[in-house]
């Protein structure tokens, strides 16, 4: 085992994601604790051209190949796993994202290492420890890893991305880019269609969650939004039900928004939702559960029934 920290570089359309820079920021801190260095592995299309942007790493391993498409759940995972096997890092970091989920679980299993998911914070002292978010953000847990090495899947926002953009030696090493036989083949990528409303450009968003209960009740929320001159946004379940178009979804798999005011009605505040709205200037949350994690990021909160609240506020705005 080395004292190094190995980071999986997530990239799409020729850009390294913020999630990766956040990993590099965590990795720099950990390398300080272990006395090792930070290695970043960038695999796939355009990998060579991305190395220059990875100055947060001391060493950048580049496996440039077009054979994996934008991302191949099996190909990327297997190629990264073989790097973990050969380099033996003390700590391996992946993002807790759609890409990182495929890679992290495979790598941990293939190299027989523990995997710690939903991580907010990792430390590498005598033992590897982490703080994680469980039960959709309702509980925080401290964990200790038995053994010397582990893979950590980091939640978005665990460290500032800017902390991972520089500070390393940035030495580039080209490595074998031979792609193994794959049972999963990349077909193509699809970007979302533009919607009627661009929620990322709105000053005020009225965001509704599962607390709205039924499609019929959306009208009431829309009325409030109209009275406010706001656009209606939503958490994922509302979109999955088909009650609002995908372009209105805020969060991990939707859009990141930063309005002046974000009014969250009946949204619990799962980490995947918070990731898309926590940078809003003023967050006001209404939720009947005083324990709801949304109150952890909101600036103002009212613990009560949204169906009591909406007409009161609409009245005041219209009156």
């Amino acid at each position: 085992m080395s004292n190094d920290v190995l980071v999986f570089v997530e990239h799409l359309n020729g850009e390294v994601t913020d999630a990766t820079y956040e990993l590099l920021a965590t990795a720099r801190k950990l390398a300080g604790q272990t006395g090792g260095s930070v290695t970043a592995a960038v695999i796939g299309t355009g990998a060579a051209s991305l190395a220059g942007g990875l100055g947060g790493a001391d060493q950048i391993l580049v496996a440039d190949t077009d054979a994996l498409g934008a991302f191949n759940p099996q190909g990327h995972a297997e190629m990264f796993a073989s790097l973990v096997t050969s380099r033996q890092p003390r700590v391996t970091l992946v993002p807790y994202t759609s890409v990182g989920m495929d890679v992290g679980n495979h790598v941990a299993a293939a190299t027989s290492q523990p995997l710690v998911s939903y991580c907010l914070k990792v430390d590498a002292g005598d033992a590897l420890t982490a703080t994680c978010q469980l039960y959709s953000g309702k509980v925080e847990a401290d964990v200790r890893v038995d053994g010397d090495t582990a893979v950590f899947a980091m939640l978005a926002g665990a460290a500032p991305a800017d902390g991972g953009r520089s500070g390393g030696a940035g030495a580039v090493e080209t490595i074998d880019a031979t792609v193994p036989d794959l049972a999963v083949s990349f077909v193509g990528i699809a970007e979302p269609e533009a919607g009627d409303v661009d929620i990322t450009a709105e000053d005020i968003l009225v965001a509704i969650g599962r607390g709205i209960e039924s499609e019929d009740n959306i009208e009431e929320a829309q009325e409030l939004a109209d009275a406010l001159g706001a656009a209606l946004a939503a958490s994922r379940p509302i979109i999955d039900q088909g009650w609002l178009p995908k372009t209105r979804q805020v969060g991990k798999s939707g859009l990141a928004v930063k309005p002046k005011v974000y009014l969250a009605l009946g949204i619990s505040g799962a980490p995947e939702h918070l990731e898309g709205m926590r940078d809003s200037s003023v967050i006001i949350a209404v939720n009947s559960d005083p324990q709801a994690p949304i109150f952890g990021v909101a600036h103002y909160g009212w613990a009560g029934d949204l169906f009591d609240f909406i007409p009161e506020l609409t009245d005041r705005l219209e009156g």
């Binding site: 964990v143 038995d146 324990q291 994690p293």
Partner: peptide, 21 residues
């Protein structure tokens, strides 16, 4: 079988962060 042991659990404070109305 994970090799990961939970050593402590906490609930976030009620309304931590938010000023409750």
């Amino acid at each position: 079988m994970s090799g990961v042991t939970i050593t402590d659990m906490r609930l976030p404070d009620e309304g931590e962060g938010a000023e409750m109305i």
